[in-house]
Amino acid sequence: MIEDFENIPVRNDLQTIGFYNLENLFDTQDNPKNMGDNDFLPISTKKWTPKRYQNKLRKLGFAISNIGKKETGKHPAIVGLAEVENAKVVEDLIASKHLEDLNYSYVHYNSPDERGIDTALIYDADAFEMLHSETFNVHLVDEDGEPDYTRDILLVSGLLDKEKIYVIVNHWSSRREGAEETEFKRFAAADKVISIIDYLKNDDLDAKIVVIGDFNDDPSSNSIRRLVNSCDLFNPMEVLHTYNRGTTNHNFKWNLFDQIIFSTNFFEATPDTLSFDKAEIFDTDFLKLFKGKYKGKPFRTYVGPKYKGGYSDHFPVYAIFRK
């Protein structure tokens, strides 16, 4: 069942910032420099055809257009993205059926990631004026002392409803080789974000900062606690993570890896400035499997090599700010 997000009055005093891991948004073209896209070609075992690609774009666009709409009556002002192959897929996404009439623009840089996936940010140019963007590398080495390439951290600054904010988009290293075995990688990413925030505050002591991403750690994890405690941040996702709710599910266990964290000055009720209103997981029914033993879990595009035709293996998250 698709929830009705239409006919909700538009709230001009509210803006939504979201984050969505898009689960391997690859185009169908072979990039000889990127071995990571070999599974996502028409001739691969996954049979990643143009038709399937367009179907995924349309579905993701529909999901993105409705993030925060229940509260605001409109599409989100800013959405951070993870697992995009290149600028082209971001362009194709914002040109897809449900986003093409909205004034979205984007920021994307190629990362050195071994899987060939990057972070990006899309924004409604009517609500957000982009001023500056840059990326920061997370330096990791493997057991042999060789460089271990991962996603860069993306920093975008701009004016949201004419107020300057900084958005830091993350996709930290996965737990594929084990949570404890890979924890040092996420500590390295946390320390990099801490250094970025220190750099911002050196220039702007009252900087309003929003840290978003797929952290591959929960709100209670050591890496997230280190980040929050070191930088005077607030994590509204802590109270949303329960045994039966999260953003991604592995072996019937919910994790809340996707989070939106922000500086505590968003609690200051100064007139004509942005203040925090609420945060949520966008786990509406159309993003879930509706039957079978995995009922209620994210409706994925693939499970292994099997095409399911869904959205993503993650639910989006969002925070609403009031002015």
Results as ranks from 00 to 15, higher is better:
residue 120 A to C: 08
residue 121 L to N: 00
residue 122 I to L: 07
residue 124 D to T: 00
residue 124 D to P: 03
residue 124 D to I: 05
residue 125 A to M: 10
residue 126 D to G: 07
residue 127 A to I: 11
residue 128 F to M: 01
residue 132 H to C: 10
residue 133 S to D: 14
residue 138 V to N: 00
residue 139 H to T: 12
residue 143 E to C: 09
residue 145 G to R: 09
residue 149 Y to Q: 12
residue 150 T to A: 02
residue 150 T to G: 08
residue 153 I to V: 07
residue 155 L to N: 07
residue 157 S to F: 08
residue 162 K to S: 15
residue 163 E to D: 09
residue 163 E to C: 09
residue 164 K to R: 15
residue 164 K to L: 12
residue 167 V to I: 07
residue 168 I to T: 01
residue 169 V to C: 06
residue 169 V to F: 03
residue 170 N to Y: 05
residue 172 W to G: 02
residue 173 S to K: 09
residue 173 S to R: 03
residue 175 R to Y: 07
residue 175 R to L: 10
residue 179 A to Y: 14
residue 184 F to G: 11
residue 185 K to C: 05
residue 185 K to L: 05
residue 188 A to C: 03
residue 189 A to E: 00
residue 190 A to Q: 02
residue 191 D to H: 13
residue 191 D to I: 06
residue 192 K to Q: 08
residue 193 V to N: 06
residue 198 D to K: 13
residue 198 D to R: 10
residue 200 L to I: 14
residue 200 L to D: 03
residue 202 N to Y: 11
residue 203 D to A: 14
residue 208 K to G: 04
residue 208 K to Y: 04
residue 213 G to H: 01
residue 213 G to A: 02
residue 214 D to S: 01
residue 215 F to Q: 05
residue 219 P to D: 08
residue 222 N to S: 12
residue 223 S to M: 06
residue 224 I to F: 01
residue 229 N to C: 00
residue 231 C to A: 07
residue 231 C to M: 08
